[in-house]
Simulated scan of single mutants.
Amino acid sequence: MKKINSAFNKAMSFVSARIDQVSEFTKPQKKFLKWIIEIWVMLPVRHNFLNVYRYSNGQYSEKSLRNQFERKIDFPALSDSVFSPLKEKECIVAFDPSFIKKSGKKTYGKGYYWSGKDGQTLPGLEISSLALVDVSDETAYSLEAVQPPAGLKDGKQMEHYVNIIGQNKDRILKYTKYVAADAYFMKTGFIEPLLKMGIQVVTRMRQDADLKYLHKGPQKSGKGRNRIFDGKVDVKNIDKRRWEVCYQDEDVCAYESVVWCVSLKRIVKVVYLKYKKTDSYSILLSTDTELGGEKVLQYYRLRFQIEFLLRDAKQYTGLEECQARSQTKLYNHFNLSLMAVSLMKLTCWATQQNKSQIPFSMRRIKTWYYNKYITETIFSNLGIDVRPVKVCF
């Protein structure tokens, strides 16, 4: 049956062409990925091997699906192929761990992890997600999601997070040198290793951050070390004479300054946000002192786009529905769920001329692919050819 030349079918043609360009994939993997991505987006039920088989129209058996997921898929290589046009645009990388509900005793990585939604530590899994954020489009695309082994203590857990970024260092630096992370990562054990990689960090500081002004006046003559600091920053009541306004709207006024961070033992760029309605404040930090204060604020706000990516994957592409237990199958399932959302966002929304007026809707895309599947299945079973008939005069 001839396929309708719609934007959605053009999207799958683009994805298919990009998969063919990935030399790390074997021919069976390329064939499988071209097929599974559309099925994964369309699937209206829980995303497990049995349900995928039921909607496969006999192309893959349940055992074949399990065998395909047992071979690790190089998703970072796929992201290199698919998102390569973004190298010409302004981007940052967002990093965020996410809690995944999972029962069972034999599942790889099962342990107790912090759930931000529930506000407590719960039994389950965790994935550490790296996402590429397009600054102009204000949207995130998945690069890779990796599980930590169970039972890691806090120090080892931070080392695991750093290793994930280190393994993707060359890939990240092709797009940007900035990584945005939430306040949990305002730690020396996270920031110092990234700086050695050539990566700058944008994050949020504690409310009681220990900061010192840098001395910019004349130095005294005679022996002794030159004066470095010029008093401590009172974060509850900053000296506005030493700060510059970098951004202002009806809700917040942002001030920027270059100061000394005691915990990191280095000079940093700090953006102080004063909220007008509540009279509260937040403190943002950038390890790049040359980065403008308004950019620091913009980059940190864009960090939240990774939350929308994770939300859509949980709601529409089965991020929390994996019934497998092995490390490789879990890795493939999590990354396929995130990549499916990213591919649909890139091909079906980001290419539109009026995208600023049309919000991205994964639900709409999923509904279209499901309707397409039902229509093609009905006509195929009835043996009806729906191709248009040429009439010659």
Rank of each mutant, 00 (worst) to 15 (best):
M12V: 05
V15W: 15
Q21N: 08
V22F: 03
E24G: 03
F32Y: 09
I39N: 06
M42G: 03
V45N: 13
H47I: 03
F49R: 11
V52A: 00
S61Q: 03
N67I: 00
N67C: 03
E70Y: 15
F75D: 03
L78F: 09
D80P: 02
F83S: 08
E90V: 04
K101W: 07
K106Y: 05
G111M: 05
Y113C: 10
S115V: 08
A131N: 00
T139Y: 08
Q147T: 12
L152E: 08
V162A: 12
V162K: 05
N163A: 11
I172E: 06
Y175Q: 14
K187M: 09
F190R: 02
V201M: 06
Q207L: 14
L211D: 01
K223M: 04
R225I: 00
N226C: 09
G231S: 06
R241D: 11
V245G: 11
V245N: 12
Y255S: 10
E256V: 08
V258W: 14
S263Q: 09
L264E: 03
R266M: 10
Y272H: 06
L273T: 00
K276P: 02
D288R: 07
G292E: 12
Q305E: 05
I306W: 15
F308Y: 14
L310Q: 08
Q315V: 02
E320V: 15
Q323L: 12
S326H: 09
Q327M: 13
K329A: 07
H333D: 03
M339H: 07
A340W: 13
K345Q: 01
L346F: 11
A350M: 12
A350E: 14
Q352D: 09
K355M: 01
Y369K: 09
N371G: 07
Y373C: 01
T375L: 10
S380C: 09
R387L: 06
C392S: 10
